[in-house]
Nucleic acid binder design. Structure first.
Lengths: 343, 343
DNA sequence: ATTGGCACTCCTGCATCCAGAGTGCCAGAA
DNA sequence: TTCTGGCACTCTGGATGCAGGAGTGCCAAT
């Protein structure tokens, strides 16, 4: 606040112009070029003075003396926060999203299409998290006897995901016991949230004969594990070839990014920081993970109805078209949410 | 055959030396350096003559006059076919494979670990296909009534994969009918190969009351679809950051490769060309897909027991350590096969 | 068939130079 | 005050030229 006091409207306009031009041209932008392209109504000299103070405040930076200016992370931050609006997509783009996603046949397909779409739309690397189950509910639990001592547990969730587990039981379990267990599991757990399930089933073994309790416990353990593992989410990425669109600072910055993109853990953390509501923009060094220090991440939650079930976003160079990217990310997230709600 | 007549042993030795040196240094190799590093027992001048004929025959090539020689695709091909042996892994490497893969907990984990391992071992991009089900058998089919009109079909295979399908039935199906159908499905389809199943179940609707036949048919359709879709395989890749280890011909060659790697179809085709037995090495332009024209692909089938259930391999620059890469790929494939057989 | 010698070619690295773009500062105008 | 025009200065990037080195092809001699 105190700092921004020093920045009058024109200086902000200059910063905005610098960001816009730099994003467009990928080259440091000088005072003369600025006044030519934007009608600021002042002379280059004035702009130079403004630039000097902007640089003092750390919003822009010049690579070398007598080069143009380049926005710093702080400059982008101010730009995103106060100098621009999310740019809505064109009607054509909206229709494209719709017609592309509407043809998805199942959850995997929805996610796969979403990631492709996002990558194409933003021309950047897209990251989509599978719908998280921590907030979702159990739709059905199925037990299948493979051999007397082996049971297959299948967990079906309300978002349509399926998780299976092979269980080795300490003792043979009869079909009757299995049927009993199956029905009890479903009565108690169906439509319950994941987090609740362990509590609800805690005392289940007591309902069974002593000799079957070991098997029941094994099944419960497997179920809890499956529930827990579902919370660690899978992530799909796409459009990594877009990274090569920056012939600039090449192998230096691209290698760590590729590495980061292969680390599910890193990506999960990254997306995890997104607030449930609202869009997150992390610019350059704001990213905790070092490999992403020269990239920005735009992410947002999506979900069916009001609830956020997962996040999606894009990773690109700090020099990106923020309004456009944010618009695309938001639009795609909304549409995916609708698809999920409908199915 | 006719061509190779012209190449006596020493010329072959020269070619071998050129390939080895070039792979090591990444720089065109000249006659003098060659005789220094390998004790060929002849003078540089002689080597030059040999090089001249090798170049006439198209095995090597010089970037410009008065530069060293670089192997051509044809040169690598001859090298792989006749001038080298697959290099077995060291004991330490073998142990590393074992201890890394042995900790896998389920099929997804096996695949995920395999792809990481392969990428690390070869320092290249690893590609692993999920075990194919076209040759596998049905372990169990489960039907779960979600609502009277909606049934969830769960297909469990002998490789531990699970596929689910949501079915909208034209008419409500009672639990009795469902149980009947479930048991009939399993009696007939269990332990049968995928390809056989449709034939075996063809006349199943006739066993049911007229009013249920629509529902039965819907279930069968879904099942057949699921079986068919399983045959289209999923592919996992890893180690794409290794692509950046060639600062040489950078964005030119890396972008199409990244694109290819994201195209499941391309990868499937690529791996599909691998013969079931034996290793495939596709060098440079031997790859049908244009984007991979400056890369080589080393792939091999793997499976539990004698059967090949899927393929895996690596993608790297044509200038790669073929013996080492082939050794690593083969070793990993064998080990994964063992793991699958055991589980 | 092999080798040493030799002239030739071409890349690479280095230093130099020039033009262009951009800046900072200052003194004068609004 | 705030803005503007002018001016000297700096720095990059591309072009040019030059010397060194590595490598080749050819030829005559072994």
């Amino acid at each position: 606040m105190n700092e921004e006091r020093k920045l009058d409207d024109r200086k902000l306009a200059v910063l905005r112009a610098i960001v816009q031009d730099y994003v467009g041209t990928e080259e440091p932008v000088g005072s003369k070029a600025l006044v030519e392209r934007h009608n600021l109504g002042v002379s280059p000299a004035t702009v130079r003075n403004d630039m000097a103070t902007l640089e003092d405040e750390g919003y822009i930076h010049q690579p070398h003396t007598s080069a143009g200016r380049v926005p710093t992370d702080k400059g982008y931050r101010l730009f995103v926060d106060r100098l621009t609006e999310v740019k809505p997509l064109s009607g054509a783009e909206r229709r494209a999203i719709g017609s592309f996603l509407d043809h998805a046949v199942d959850l995997d397909d929805v996610v796969a299409r979403t990631v492709r779409l996002l990558a194409q739309l933003t021309r950047q690397v897209a990251v989509v998290q599978y719908p998280s189950l921590s907030r979702s509910t159990v739709r059905h639990v199925e037990l299948v006897a493979l051999t007397p001592n082996r049971v297959m547990l299948v967990l079906i969730t309300d978002t349509g995901r399926v998780e299976q587990r092979l269980i080795d039981c300490p003792s043979a379990v009869g079909e009757t016991v299995l049927a009993d267990l199956r029905s009890r599991l479903n009565t108690r757990a169906a439509n319950q949230r994941f987090a609740e399930v362990p509590t609800l089933l805690q005392d289940l073994p007591e309902a069974f004969e002593r000799e079957d309790r070991g098997a029941v416990a094994a099944v419960l353990t497997a179920l809890f594990e499956a529930l827990a593992e579902q919370t660690e989410e899978r992530i799909v990425i796409g459009g990594s070839a877009n990274l090569t669109r920056f012939p600039h600072d090449f192998p230096l910055t691209i290698a760590p990014v590729l590495e980061a993109l292969e680390e599910q853990v890193v990506l999960l953390k990254l997306l995890g920081e997104t607030a449930d509501a609202g869009m997150m923009v992390r610019i350059g060094h704001e990213n905790a993970y070092e490999g992403l220090n020269s990239t920005s991440v735009v992410s947002v939650g999506y979900g069916s109805g009001d609830e956020t079930v997962a996040k999606l976003g894009v990773v690109g160079p700090t020099r990106m078209d923020y309004p456009g990217t944010m618009g695309a990310v938001r639009a795609v997230a909304r549409y995916v949410g609708q698809i999920l709600a409908a199915s």
